[in-house]
Computed example of a mutant assay.
Amino acid sequence: MAVTLAELARRFQGKVRGDSGIAVERVATLDAAGPRDIAYVSDRKYAALLSGTAAGAVILTEADARQYNGTALIVDDPHLCFARVATLLHPPRAFNPGVHVTAVVDPTASVAKTAWIGPHAVIGHRAVIGDDVFIGAGCVVGDGATIGARTRLMARVTIDDHCVIGENCLFHSGAVIGSDGFGYARDGERWHKIPQLGRVVIGHNVEVGANTTIDRGAMGDTVIGDGVKLDNLIQIAHNVRVGENTAIAACAGIAGSTVIGKRCTVGGQAGISGHLIIADDVHITAASLVTNSIAEAGHYSASLKAEPAEKWRRNAARLHHLDEMARRLAKIEQKLK
Rank of each mutant, 00 (worst) to 15 (best):
R152A: 02
V201M: 02
H172I: 03
F182P: 09
E189N: 15
G188I: 04
P195T: 05
C163A: 10
V200F: 04
R156I: 10
W191K: 04
R199K: 15
G174F: 00
S173M: 14
I202W: 02
F171S: 04
L170W: 06
G142L: 00
A185C: 11
Y184P: 04
Q196V: 13
L170H: 10
T151Q: 05
R199N: 08
A175G: 12
G166N: 03
I177V: 14
V157C: 12
R186W: 10
D161V: 07
V157F: 08
G144Q: 00
C163E: 05
R186Q: 13
T146M: 09
F171Q: 01
F182E: 09
V200E: 04
D180P: 00
S173K: 13
H162K: 15
R152M: 06
F171E: 01
T151I: 08
N168V: 07
F171L: 05
T146A: 07
L153N: 00
F171V: 00
C169M: 11
A155D: 15
W191D: 09
R186P: 10
A185L: 11
V200C: 10
A155L: 11
V176S: 15
A185D: 13
V200H: 05
R199E: 09
E189A: 15
I159N: 08
R190T: 14
K193E: 11
L170Y: 07
D161A: 10
V176G: 14
T146P: 04
D143K: 04
G198Y: 00
A145E: 06
Q196H: 14
R199A: 08
A149S: 10
I147W: 00
G174V: 03
G181C: 12
L170F: 08
L170S: 06
N168H: 13
V200Q: 04
S179R: 13
N168G: 05
D161F: 10
M154N: 12
R150H: 15
A185H: 10
R190I: 13
V201N: 03
R152D: 02
T146S: 08
D160G: 09
R150G: 13
D143F: 06
L153Q: 03
R152F: 05
S179M: 09
S179D: 14
G144S: 03
A175K: 04
A149M: 08
W191L: 12
G188T: 06
P195G: 02
R152G: 01
A145N: 03
I147N: 03
K193Y: 09
I159V: 15
M154C: 12
S179Y: 10
R150M: 13
I147M: 01
G174T: 05
V157Y: 14
G198P: 01
N168R: 11
D161S: 09
D187T: 07
G166P: 07
M154D: 09
V164W: 02
S179A: 15
G142R: 00
N168T: 07
T158H: 15
R156V: 08
H192I: 06
F171A: 04
V176M: 15
D161Q: 10
D187R: 06
L153R: 03
G142W: 03
I147A: 01
H192Y: 10
G166T: 03
